[in-house]
Design a protein around this nucleic acid. Structure first.
Lengths: 340, 340
DNA sequence: GTTAGCACTCCTGGATTGAGAGTGCTAACC
DNA sequence: GGTTAGCACTCTCAATCCAGGAGTGCTAAC
């Protein structure tokens, strides 16, 4: 792959991303200063097609990048693009606000992300599980029902309704709450299970049955947990020319409405900070015409969730990658700041 | 409007709802036992058109109901239809489960509602505001930040992050929490503001500044509050023939992604139990081709939120009305049961 | 190795056409 | 007078055709 081929491939990707039209040799020679004639470019393009980086929708149309072409572009050719200053300014303002409602902040994150990219934005709520307990409270609602509140070190709250094995007074529950808080604060669920359990039994032997219920409710939230994912921008996405085809649009809609699938989608390669998945690289056939850019954000130093952009393969990879990285960082900082 | 005209109008609505094709006089005479010839029906239809109950997409097509025609059908002609037993059974199972995660239950409600109607389902989270306090807890997160938890009589939880005017120890906050809980439990926000405030100041005079902050945080949640609305079934909706037109689909998408608009949409005529809004009756021009069926559910006897079905005007009004009424009732019962 | 020229292919959009469905009108019928 | 059969007319829809345009691949010259 010599220098000129790279130039040509890069130009094809850029032009196609901008125009959504197959790119011809003439256009390429005119718009990009390659210093050679269309005929030469035609030869290069034929080579690139043979090598699998370009493809032709039909004879006598221009070329468009193949998945492999995009991949090469992303890995090798792409120039870094920092987001425009107005946008950065807007983001600073967004994340400078007090995080008094996590859901709202995440929703706004999704909103901005989709507006700035004209794609679908997916924003996952933070995990609460692996982090450490801060406070537990058991509140009676009726004779046999109580509300269990879990608060983590980072200020995230989870609630569970529990069925009481026997009626308990408010005082008793308060007592249990404070013992649980004292014993569990600063520990993770795993630590609790491993070490602290018997101490608890000793201290609260009178309320053993109640304790069982409370501990049972501490189980990690299941996969279908109450942790919403914010999905915004379907409308913008469907304004893109590739989604004028209703079937393709429906395929995406179908996927995006199933929380569990979206969760899996975001969870892939969750160890890495930034993941770009192009077309067929995606395990879901419905997304074979789409690309996905995913970044992780952190709460208290640990990866806690992911934000992502889903769009046509013909997306501004450079622009979107840098934007989503920035937003993930700002979001992490906002979470940290909200506690400190 | 004589008896036969009613029969004809009813038949037109039913047939159009089923087939999505303009209905001709021949079809009508054949499929519905009206006992007269197509020519007679043609005369009736011409009359009905003149009266504004039917319209013609173009000369020499069949007729379709106008908004007014649907309205008359809904108000006068429609027969009650109870949901099929399998569905009722499924609903019973759904609402029999323990409500340990409100969000999940609401999401499932939206899911079933959209599946059963092939329309878009909108499900609002319950209000927490007008109900009575059960418990308040202020938890320190750091030197200057605390988490304020509000629990209502019905077991609904709200959380707020508050900035502390001065550092406070855990003990102090705990003290404030228990005073607040004791004083506020069983009262509504309005009552608190009106009567209990000075008592609080007396009792907690030492922590006056802290108290100010806590009370400030008790303000009713703003319109853009952290109260999600579950919107499901866009995919199903867009399978309906009227949404093959991309523009119409986009109009709905644009509306549905803006939480505030959806909230307003659901809030109309919120005093009534069941509201059916047909086409142009809707204030949003983007929904002039749609109909909306809305029902209220209750928590603790008070209307707390709404569930709705948005679909093409050509929807099964009878079926959907009865289903949504049933679901609203079951949902209310589930909330009540979860406390009792 | 590069370029100009040219025949060829294929898509696109507009115009045309025929089939089909449904109407409105008229005149006959009970 | 209400009802019905017959018929000409209208309008949509899908298929077909056609010309224009864009882009290619090949060949031959530079």
């Amino acid at each position: 792959m010599d220098q000129r081929k790279r130039q040509v491939l890069k130009a094809v990707v850029q032009d196609y991303v901008d125009t959504a039209e197959p790119v011809g040799s003439r256009t390429l020679a005119r718009k990009y200063g390659l210093g050679v004639s269309p005929a030469t470019i035609r030869n290069e393009m034929a080579d690139l097609e043979e090598m699998g980086f370009l493809e032709q929708p039909h004879t006598s149309a221009g070329r468009i990048p193949s998945d492999r072409g995009y991949r090469f572009f992303v890995d090798v050719l792409m120039d870094a693009v920092s987001p425009p200053p107005e946008l950065v300014e807007r983001l600073r303002r967004l994340y400078a606000q007090r995080v008094d409602q996590v859901g709202r902040l995440l929703r706004q994150t999704a909103q901005v992300l989709s507006e700035a990219t004209d794609c679908l934005a997916l924003v996952e709520s933070p995990h609460v599980e692996p982090v450490t307990f801060r406070h537990l409270q058991v509140l009676p609602l009726s004779e046999r029902r109580a509300l269990l509140l879990l608060v983590t070190e980072e200020g995230l709250v989870q609630q569970r309704l529990v069925e009481l094995p026997e009626p308990a007074s408010e005082g008793e529950l308060q007592r249990i709450s404070s013992v649980l808080t004292r014993r569990l604060a600063g520990r993770t669920l795993a630590q609790v299970r491993a070490t602290v359990l018997h101490e608890l039994y000793d201290e609260l032997s009178a309320y053993r049955a109640l304790l069982e219920v409370a501990l049972e409710a501490l189980r990690p939230p299941g996969p279908d947990s109450d942790r919403p994912i914010y999905v915004l921008g379907t409308r913008r996405l469907f304004r893109q020319p590739e989604f004028q085809d209703l079937r393709r649009a429906q395929a995406v809609l179908g996927l995006v409405e199933q929380q569990e699938l979206v969760r899996e989608l975001l969870g892939q390669k969750s160890g890495e900070e930034l993941v770009i998945t192009i077309g067929q690289e995606n395990p879901y056939p419905d997304l074979h015409d789409c690309s996905l850019v995913t970044a992780s954000y952190r709460v208290g130093g640990e990866i806690a969730g992911r934000i992502a952009v889903l769009g046509p393969k013909r997306m501004h990879y450079a622009r979107i990658s840098s934007l989503i990285e920035l937003m993930a960082r700002l979001l992490s900082e906002a979470f940290d700041r909200s506690v400190r």
